[in-house]
Design a binder for these strands. Structure first.
Lengths: 208, 208
DNA sequence: TGGTAACCTGAGCAATCGCTCGGCTTTACT
DNA sequence: AGTAAAGCCGAGCGATTGCTCAGGTTACCA
């Protein structure tokens, strides 16, 4: 059977320390060029040159250009999810309001600390390279939302759980991303954060 | 002074009926190929062939490939904005709740009727070709929101107007787009719409 | 009806880019 | 020390693509 997995996995895993450094140098060079010149100007020759390795070495590990980009996006998404999830995992027993605000703060910081890369990825990287990771990150967001729901016990509403989660995560994600990557004029960031927090809290845990 | 306008305006405007047809055929062929094969597989030769005109004619009107794509995106965005705005303009004197739901319905329909093109554009078209139009559409959304505010008079809250508009438009835009282009499982569309409407209404016009 | 401007044609050039391959160097292991 | 495996090199091939240009056709108007 023809294995037509549309997988962008590296074609070979480096085993020695030297080759792991080569591998990483390539990925990092790709990230740098992505930020500095954008996806469209990316060439394998250029990546290899920037990484200080030969084009042959690049093709030792990566089947083609998009595999390198895929790896860059993967690392970014994984780091992002970890940063976003970390402060939330220690929230057992905390009131919903504090939990929500902690969540918002962590997400904002996770975006802000990766601003240039996230901007470059969102701008130009083709969807088929982004989507798997965005989908995963999305799943993790929803998992956090569901876990928070469980932790919050009877503080939160229980009807329409899926729909409310969907809308809340959509709102938070879109608003924070836009706030960092494309801040609108005449909008005060602190005010937006406060208003956003207030509304989300009121949404999931309306005072009875 | 070197005129380095990063403008993607067509290099020449067709004057006769025949050439206007050529121009349109090129734009439409580009839209079709964008949907069927995606931005990356787009070539000027292929666009011309699909349009049934020669490659020379294409370059008569469009400086390069991206100018054609830019025009496709422009037309899509303009049509979208018109569809989204139309039902809202006749809302003088209507209660806020009805206005909001009309707005949501119009937006949803405007997205849905362009689903394949919007998906193709969002997936692969580079940001520098999309952004000007997205920004414009965004401005029109905000204008609608502000106009609605004015029409609604004392029915709506007045503090934090800019921030609330920003968040509401972000939420509505992201939620509806995602709902059509990437519908999550386990989420009921009608329920989402109802919940979204309820929350938006309660957000901008809380019952006192 | 003749001339000019607008419009159209398509073979093919120049440049780029992804990727290969034959051969060399370093590391790991016995 | 010897050898095999892993890693590395980079000139250059093959294919593609954006775009030009010299010359033809159609529409407009005096």
């Amino acid at each position: 059977m023809a294995q037509k997995t549309n997988d962008f996995a590296p074609k070979k895993v480096p085993k020695q320390a030297r080759s792991r450094a080569t591998f990483d140098a390539i990925v990092e060079a790709c990230a740098r060029l992505l930020v500095e010149r954008g996806y469209r100007a990316l060439t394998t020759n250029h990546i290899a040159e920037t990484a200080g390795v030969s084009i042959g070495s690049l093709y030792e590990y990566f089947g083609d250009k998009d595999v390198v980009v895929y790896e860059v996006v993967r690392r970014t998404a994984v780091g992002f999810s970890e940063d976003a999830a970390r402060p939330v995992s220690t929230l057992q027993g905390v009131p919903v309001a504090a939990g929500v605000r902690a969540w918002l703060g962590a997400l904002l910081e996770a975006i802000r600390s990766r601003e240039p890369l996230m901007r470059a990825i969102a701008a130009d990287v083709p969807a088929h390279l982004r989507d798997p990771h965005i989908r995963e990150a999305w799943e993790r967001h929803l998992a956090i939302a569901r876990a928070a729901y469980r932790l919050a016990g009877d503080q939160v509403r229980e009807d329409r759980a899926e729909e409310v989660s969907f809308l809340v995560v959509t709102l938070v994600d879109a608003a924070l991303t836009r706030l960092v990557l494309d801040p609108p004029p005449d909008v005060d960031e602190a005010t937006v954060l406060d208003e956003l927090g207030t509304r989300v809290i009121d949404w999931v845990a309306p005072r009875r």
